[in-house]
Design a protein around this nucleic acid. Structure first.
Lengths: 117, 117
DNA sequence: GTATTACATCGACAAACGTGAGTGTTATTG
DNA sequence: CAATAACACTCACGTTTGTCGATGTAATAC
């Protein structure tokens, strides 16, 4: 919201004097920021974002062989993206014979989602 | 939610036959994915995430000179991060004499936030 | 006018990234 | 058994990233 608080009428500080006193501080500490940024970074690729979208909407376990034809990338690149999502703690997978099934880890997106709301 | 739908009992496809028919599709189209991934990517760095946190919570325009002492990075690096946030359409700035004031663009995070919820 | 401050931009660097071709591993089919 | 499918992993590549020091630009203070 463009509240347009008073823009503190600053003055150039005297030689060597400290600049503006900071009057605002982050509510989110470094630890939280690291966790949420890791999740956001993993979502920061359109293919990975669509992957998560598919997995979330399906709300079950999806075979990689169903994901491959949805995207215009090679199988190895898709595997790489799934690996990134797993490394970020967003998804996990389960082997079943020849097939691998991926699913979204419940609550993995919650902290970021809550912060954004 | 770990609904654990039936894991379709796949069978190895015959030589040359198409693999699994995809039964799931993304709800989010390519355009949306590109927009949201751009925002997520910009939030995918802990310093930028904290920057956005400060600017959002303050709900007004914040002078760069107040932001610099909050983080353990050089002024030029901070400027670089603010530039990235601006390029992603998350923040904008306003010059006032020697000082620059940054603020979050209303609704810039809305699409991503809604998708995550 | 001169000195100095606030901020953005440039140049450089190592590290990480997205991508595909190729390879390896394991399981299934026949 | 042999052939082959599904998937992850390795290697190589060009691109992007985060970082800092140095420089540029514009405005203020004296």
């Amino acid at each position: 919201m463009p509240v347009d608080l008073e823009l503190a009428p600053k003055q150039k500080r005297a030689n060597g004097a400290p600049c503006c006193e900071p009057v605002v501080y982050p509510d989110v500490d470094r630890e939280q920021a690291l966790r949420m940024a890791e999740v956001a970074k993993a979502l920061g690729d359109p293919i990975r974002l669509q992957l998560v979208d598919v997995l979330r909407k399906h709300a079950g376990k999806v075979c990689v062989c169903e994901l491959v034809p949805l995207f215009d990338i090679s199988q190895s690149t898709l595997s790489h993206h799934l690996g990134k999502l797993r490394a970020a703690g967003i998804v996990d997978s389960e082997r079943q014979g020849l097939w691998a099934y991926y699913y979204v880890i419940p609550d993995a997106l919650e902290e970021l989602s809550a912060w954004l709301s």
